[in-house]
Simulated assay, not measured.
Amino acid sequence: MASSLVLSYSIPQRLIHWLMAGLILFNLLFAEAMEELSEAVEEGQTPTPDMIASANIHAYVGIAVLCLAVIRVVLRLTHGAPEALAEEPPLGRLAAKVAHGAFYLLFFAMPISGALAYYGGVEAAGGPHAGPMKLVMWVLIVVHVGAVLVHQFVWKTPVAQRMTKG
């Protein structure tokens, strides 16, 4: 489907967007389980079953995000995406493209680097995962929400409805 004909995101696209948002937010807010397990192992302590279970939940949520990201890309390729609104300034359009590209990159890079660190023992993957990638994800979320609010209340455009009502 040509993206110029798309006025809104499809129901599956919207569901995946909000499901991923919730899962990503969960993992960002509850990452200490993984950090606690790593510290225990580094200090030579035996991790408790609760530590392992909590770390596994973080890992499983990350795997779910990765699987949903694959589906999301397939849906974007098959269903398209709405074009930027004419009211949006050119710099805003560019910023949106860069931000969305960074989101998609992180949808894949964060779960893969986390899995490499947790399941593969690749310590070099854990640092970027828990450090710069996590920080960039937080920044993108804040900017994304801010941009939606600008669209809604400053430019008075219906961008938010594309991902809520359709």
Score class of each variant (00 low, 15 high):
Met1Gly: 02
Leu5Ser: 10
Leu7Glu: 15
Ser8Gln: 11
Ser8Asn: 08
Tyr9Phe: 10
Tyr9Arg: 14
Ser10Trp: 06
Pro12Gly: 11
Arg14His: 04
Arg14Asp: 05
Ile16Cys: 07
His17Ala: 07
Trp18Gln: 03
Met20Lys: 08
Met20Trp: 07
Ala21Trp: 05
Gly22Ser: 07
Ile24Thr: 10
Ile24Ser: 08
Ile24Tyr: 12
Leu25Tyr: 14
Leu25Trp: 10
Phe26Trp: 11
Phe26Ala: 13
Phe26His: 13
Leu29Ile: 00
Leu29His: 01
Phe30Cys: 00
Ala31Met: 12
Glu32Asn: 09
Ala33Lys: 00
Glu35Val: 03
Glu35Pro: 02
Leu37Ala: 02
Leu37Cys: 05
Ser38Pro: 14
Ala40Glu: 02
Val41Cys: 09
Thr46Ile: 06
Pro47Trp: 07
Pro47Gly: 04
Thr48Leu: 10
Pro49Trp: 08
Pro49Glu: 15
Pro49Ala: 14
Pro49Phe: 15
Ile52Phe: 12
Ile52His: 13
Ser54Cys: 01
Ser54Val: 02
Ala55Ile: 02
Asn56Ser: 06
Ile57Leu: 03
Ala59Cys: 14
Tyr60Gln: 15
Tyr60Val: 13
Tyr60Lys: 15
Val61Met: 07
Val61Lys: 05
Val61Gln: 06
Val65Gln: 01
Cys67Gln: 11
Leu68Arg: 04
Ala69Asp: 04
Ile71Arg: 05
Ile71Gly: 07
Ile71Gln: 14
Arg72Met: 08
Val73Lys: 01
Val74Gln: 08
Val74Asp: 08
Leu75Trp: 04
Arg76Asp: 11
Arg76Ala: 05
Thr78Pro: 05
Ala84Phe: 13
Ala86His: 07
Ala86Cys: 10
Glu87Val: 10
Glu88Ile: 05
Pro89Glu: 12
Pro89Tyr: 03
Gly92His: 02
Leu94Thr: 09
Ala96Ile: 00
Val98Ser: 11
Ala99Glu: 01
Ala99Trp: 06
Ala99Leu: 08
Phe103Cys: 00
Phe103Glu: 00
Phe103Trp: 01
Tyr104Val: 08
Leu105Asn: 12
Leu105Lys: 07
Phe107Ser: 01
Ala109Pro: 13
Met110Arg: 02
Ile112Gly: 09
Ser113Ala: 04
Ser113Gln: 03
Leu116Ile: 11
Leu116Met: 13
Leu116Pro: 13
Ala117Asp: 03
Tyr118Gln: 08
Tyr118Pro: 09
Tyr119Thr: 09
Gly121Glu: 01
Glu123Leu: 05
Glu123Ile: 14
His129Asn: 05
Ala130Ser: 06
Met133Pro: 06
Lys134Val: 04
Val136Ser: 03
Val136Arg: 09
Val136His: 06
Val136Asp: 01
Met137Ser: 00
Val139Ser: 08
Ile141Thr: 07
Ile141Met: 11
Val142Glu: 01
Val142Asp: 02
Val142Gln: 00
Val143Met: 13
His144Tyr: 08
Gly146Leu: 02
Gly146Asp: 09
Ala147Met: 12
Ala147Asn: 11
Ala147Thr: 11
Leu149Trp: 08
Val150Pro: 02
Gln152His: 13
Thr157Met: 04
Pro158His: 10
Val159Glu: 13
Val159Arg: 14
Ala160Tyr: 12
Ala160Trp: 12
Ala160Lys: 09
Gln161Thr: 10
Met163Phe: 13
Met163Asn: 15
Met163Trp: 15
